[in-house]
Amino acid sequence: MNKKAKKLLGKIAFTAAIILVLLFVLGPYMWMVSSSFKSTLEIQGMEPSWIPKTFTLDNYKTMNDIVPVFDYFKNSLIISGGTMFLSIILSTLAAYSLSRFRYKARNPYIMALFSTQMLPGILFLIPYYVMFIWIKHTFGLQMTNTYYGLIFTYTSFSLPFSILMLRNYLDSVPREIDEQALIDGCTRVQALFRVIIPLAKPGIAAVGIYSFIMGWSEILFATIISGSRTTPLSIGLLDYIQQNAAHWGNMMAACIMSTIPVLILFTLMQKHIVQGLVSGATKG
């Protein structure tokens, strides 16, 4: 009996701990979601309630009125989509090279990839901006406040992790498959495109989604090198809080809107991204 009671107690404590963890994690989300359906009056009110007393969609309907959030959403889609696309191409080529060939620069390059991941963004930001201004001044090529400027920047931010993750993935594709393709008369490049890439699809998708999320969430560089025409959501959301009025309801609605794409992508590829993160952390 005593042993049984102890076991039951253990089970209750365990369940309680899990529930506590979940409440801590989900609480802020629930508050965000419930606030997004509340009227401004209720948000300003004194009594906190988790369930909106008067359920309203106004925050969603008016979220584009004060802040051009749909434009920001479009900008973010273009920038993150472009980053995803470019990052997939560059990291697939580089990862294939690292996975299949042995050459002098290989190990130093891998080391360089690991260390650039750790460099502080603020370290490049100032000279990077100076460089952008210089390019504009010398070659007449506009770099700030352009989609391609941001896409190029974010692509190279995502490259170290993407290349390392994809290299691990390609390492798990047996070399015999390449060799067979070569024997069958493919060139190296054909083998890569016709045989290896189709096999590496899950890994490539994981890299793409990682790059997309990276571009979607970046703030520091966006504050400087984006501009009125290219403002992404990540900094655009701040516009809801103005000197004389704070539109929290609209902001929560816009927050939900900007979480959804990331959430969908992550759910699709959860397993691969988690594996990539974990192997990066446990092997390093």
Binding site: S97, F101, Y103, S156, L159, R188
Partner: peptide, 14 residues
């Protein structure tokens, strides 16, 4: 040469 050629774009970007 192919190996270096493949990492070149990523190296340039970084």
């Amino acid at each position: 040469r192919l190996a270096y050629f493949l990492i070149l774009p990523a190296v340039l970007a970084m």
